[in-house]
Nucleic acid binder design. Structure first.
Lengths: 200, 200
DNA sequence: TATAAAAAATACCATACAGTATGTTTTATT
DNA sequence: AATAAAACATACTGTATGGTATTTTTTATA
């Protein structure tokens, strides 16, 4: 195999396993040893490709966590159609798409925000970047609705975007505490009611 | 000093320092050594009073984390007055009461939920208990508003309670990523608009 | 004041950790 | 085939960890 391709595959393997373990067990308590045991490669291989754990953490955020959020929560906002329907679809469909594993372990981004969001400035910036991207996309969609007269012009797009994001991330954490979906049903009802209020 | 009083004071000291360090640096990465260094006592003292770190964790949750939430977010909901005004007051006053330290390190409960909410069942139950207490108190207040004809009877009290809690906890995490309060202002505007919708 | 128990200190252990030094194997180039 | 560099493996270091064993100090009671 070509060297640069092999290198790329190895790095991708490490990132994938690291993301999985960060998601399941948290960032701080996931050691390099545990990650490399998952890859079936050695510690030497890790330090050949990465300077340290921090560098890996930042790659996991930008290559896995960010992509995940953008794919499921940002990109679909650009679809054509009624903005309010898109909003409801994106948030509700996402929640309903989660399997037991994802409900149990919560949102990878939110987990990182709460675990390392007040520690390393580098993590802070990388995570903030995701939130800002998400916020902007929501604002664009809400503004489009206002322009097309399907959304009440008196509501603040920025405030609504942040309230939507906050509630979504909040419930992803709270759901961890439960073993069934009743709390998610409450959230879903709350969200539906909330979105309906934007209508003209 | 009386023995049982001394014992009680020592335990309280350990709990206070542990809560502080959990809040600042997280649960998992706060070691017994670090806690006991803060208390200026020895490791022997710790293991005289506590069986292990888990037992301390549970005491911190029930004696510090829970008390904190109940005092600031639950008890004030029982005040007399217009339920909607009480709602707005409690949530907004709480947010506005936070100092730089509390904004930086987020909500101790939410931090724990996201860090250990999917690990130890004992932590899970202790934390869920707080959320349930909070949820019930909000439902009671909303139901009172409905009975007194100040709150729209068509909204679900449980759904509204969970949506309020989720957004509040969500923003406490997200705020960690920022160095100023603009994101909090967005949230506050979003919350005000949200609460206004409950009006008849 | 003697004695027992509680409170706290000291010293220790096995394990896990991030990271390093050095070796071996694989791949690319001449 | 020779050589160099990249990819990976092995063995190690120093430090931190949760927890234990044992000793010293403080407090309560007779």
């Amino acid at each position: 195999m070509q060297q640069d391709l092999k290198s790329e595959l190895t790095k991708q393997l490490i990132i994938d396993k690291a993301f999985k373990l960060f998601h399941e067990n948290g960032f701080k308590t996931t050691s390099i040893d545990k990650i490399m045991k998952e890859t079936a490669l050695s510690k030497g291989a890790f330090y050949h490709h990465y300077k340290n754990k921090k560098e890996l953490g930042l790659e996991v955020i930008s290559l896995k966590v960010q992509k995940r959020v953008i794919k499921s929560m940002v990109t679909p906002l650009s679809n054509t159609g009624n903005p309010l329907q898109i909003l409801e679809h994106v948030f509700l469909d996402r929640l309903k798409s989660f399997n037991v594993y994802e409900k149990k372990h919560g949102c990878p981004m939110n987990n990182l925000i709460n675990e390392v969001g007040d520690h390393e400035i580098a993590y802070q910036l990388a995570l903030k970047n995701i939130i800002e991207t998400w916020k902007m996309a929501l604002i664009d969609l809400l503004d489009r609705g206002k322009k097309e007269n399907t959304i009440n012009k008196n509501i603040s797009s920025a405030a609504t975007a942040i309230y939507l994001i906050s509630a979504f991330e909040g419930i992803r954490g709270i759901r961890k505490l439960y073993t069934d979906d009743t709390i998610l049903d409450d959230y879903i009802n709350g969200l539906s009611l909330y979105i309906k209020q934007f209508k003209i």
